[in-house]
């Protein structure tokens, strides 16, 4: 079966890969491109561990076909930190202990960054509803929410 050739941009870098028509972006990122920071928790769009941005918009990569991203811009957790500097969301998650096992963390980082780019001054309620698609079973969310609110404060400063 002839595979599809996809040329795209991942974290600003031109990237090419081959995939089947049914392959999801999540599987292409993890298995074909080697970016395993994006996690699979459910593959049905219910947990948010696979969150990435597609042309700047937050999506679940498990619900995007790899073939669709041809000519588009994909952003993953691997592209969030800038060389040696963490993004404020990442830094604040560390400072507030907003992660325990860490499996949901890449998705939380990508989603929270997308939120703060849209809304630099979200309320606790805003953050909770924005992150409702990012399941975390370890933290009870408390420290994640605090970290995101603190990151927002820092980014506004």
């Amino acid at each position: 079966m002839a595979k599809l050739h996809v040329e795209t941009s991942v974290n600003g870098e031109p990237t090419e890969f081959l995939c089947e028509p049914h392959t999801t972006l999540l599987d292409a990122l993890r298995n074909d491109i080697g970016l395993t920071g994006t996690k699979e928790g459910c593959a049905t769009g219910d947990c948010g561990a696979c969150s990435v941005t597609l042309n700047g918009r937050l999506v679940c990569s498990c619900l995007v076909l790899a073939a669709e991203v041809s000519g588009q811009e994909v952003g993953t957790v691997e592209g969030v930190a800038d060389a040696e500097t963490l993004h404020p969301v990442q830094q604040k998650l560390l400072e507030h202990a907003g992660l325990q096992c860490g499996i949901c963390t890449p998705g939380v980082v990508v989603a929270a960054k997308a939120l703060l780019e849209r809304d630099p001054n979200p309320s606790e309620r805003d953050v909770r509803f924005w992150l409702a698609g990012n399941l975390c079973r370890c933290t009870g969310y408390d420290k994640i929410i605090r970290a995101v609110l603190d990151a927002a404060t820092e980014m506004r400063a």
């Binding site: 395993t36 920071g37 980082v109």
Partner: peptide, 11 residues
């Protein structure tokens, strides 16, 4: 921590 917020940690 850094490995876990950057997606580098291997699960």
């Amino acid at each position: 921590g850094i490995d876990k917020v950057t997606g580098r940690a291997q699960f």
